[in-house]
Design a protein around this nucleic acid. Structure first.
Length: 143
RNA sequence: UAAGCAGGCUACCUUAUCGCUCUGGCGGUGAACGUCAGAGAGGAAAGUCCGGACACCAUAGUGCAGUAUAGCGGGUAACGCCCGUCGUUCCAUUUUAAUUUCUAUUAGGAUGGAAAAGGACCAGUGCAACAGAAAGCAAGUACAGUUCGGCUGUAGUGAAACCAGGUAAACUCUAUACGGUGAAACGUCACGUAAAUCGGUGUUUGAGGGCUGCACGCCCGAAUCGAAGGGUAGGCGGUUCGAACCUUUGGGUAACUAAAGGUCUAGAUAAAUGAUAAGGAGCCCCGAUGUAUUUCGAGGUGUACAGGAUCCGGCUUAUUGGCCUGCUUUUUUA
RNA sequence: GGCCCUGUGGCGCAACUGGAUAGCGCAUCUGACUACGAAUCAGAAGGUUACAAGUUCGAAUCUUGUCAGGGUCA
């Protein structure tokens, strides 16, 4: 563990609504982990797959975004939906940072078959994150 | 002024807030991070249909096989691309001749435009449904003519009929070009496992490899091939200055090219250009005025096709609106 | 990013060295048989051979270009 400095865990909070490169979910292993063992909550047209990961890197949450090629053939519309999803996560992620303990990996899937507006995506994002909190709280109480 | 055709250019804008990637400066030992400044998708970035650059494989070698192209000349790094030109076919206009009351038909010439994968059945092999005597090496119907010789002409079937027949986007032949594999190439650093198990072949009598379909030749060569199984699937370089773009002058019918001057113009990697709000160009529709252009008011829309992934030159396909140039036809005025 | 393959009724397949009505099985519909159903028998419908252009007298077949689907790679 050469580069893991656990004391550096907290990020500076000056840029609240940012979504830099280091918070993006890139590692193929963790993505495989998400699909095999991750739990999910969904609110059409969004679906959130999440899993707890080891506290290894500096970031608290890694998040990724996916739009299936099967539903959207054009690369332009796929890029647009991914941008909308990223934007919605960027604006609403602060609640997650304030209300959770531990590290998580997120993957947002878009399941709809039509191009949404930003308001639809943001509404779905808020609901999905709320359901994520509820699921986590009930799990903690069971423990 | 309007319409059509051909070619070229362009790709909505402004403000505010929040945000993304890269580069440079400063702070920071360094990384992270902060801050300031700058840069940040296309005409097709697409399809991957051709041609190259570049990298590795012998210094890329020989023969066969295979693939591609096809009048002639030029351009180019190269091309299946582009330009010019010849012939062919089609269309339009015009003209001549014959027939005809006219319309029109046939044949020939001229002008303009368009299209196309446009070598060779005088090397050989194959193919041709139905119809037809006969569709390829053998035969033959009817009528007419006749120098009486299966000599000549006509008719009928058919897309094609006796003729050196048709057919090569049939095999093939001729000429020319092409070695193979492709940035998941290739180099390098790091992490990690199994130097284990089973079976085959082999060490100068040479296994196997050098990703070519085969043969030869050349090089490396002591281990190697297969099965099942285990590990890693990360970083950096290649990677953006290039057959680059712009302007002027000269050469060329043109495609294009030479010289001089100037410019720096994306480098992401689960993949950067976005979101929200307001407003304005533009477009559409409705109403009023009006011969019409226009003007005023209200509403809608505020864009089509579409996102770099090593890089260039083409081709093909998708596509909305605006602007410019040329040609043709038409209207008005003088 | 590169390379390769395939498109024929609703489904699975034939016909592919060009020759005319594109065929077979299952499924569908109608009728018969039966008290009713299944099975069986008889009959019918359903195709612009993925789309577009070309070569040819003639194209599912040959050529080219689009579109759709699938496979493969360190």
């Amino acid at each position: 563990m050469p580069r893991a400095r656990l004391g550096r865990f907290t990020k500076p909070m000056s840029k609240v609504f940012s979504y830099p490169k280091s918070e993006k979910l890139k590692n193929k292993k963790t993505i495989d982990l998400l699909f095999s063992e991750g739990k999910s909550v969904s609110k059409y047209p969004l679906k959130l797959i999440y899993a707890q990961t080891a506290p290894f890197f500096n970031t608290q949450i890694e998040a990724g975004v996916t739009v299936p090629k099967r539903n959207f053939k054009s690369a332009v519309t796929r890029n647009r939906i991914k941008r909308l999803l990223r934007e919605a996560y960027r604006i609403n992620k602060q609640e997650v940072f304030n209300n959770t303990e531990g590290r998580f990996a997120f993957l947002f899937l878009y399941l709809g078959k039509e191009v949404p507006t930003f308001k639809q995506v943001e509404k779905g994002m808020k609901v999905v994150l709320q359901r994520f909190f509820e699921a986590e709280i009930t799990q903690n109480r069971k423990k």
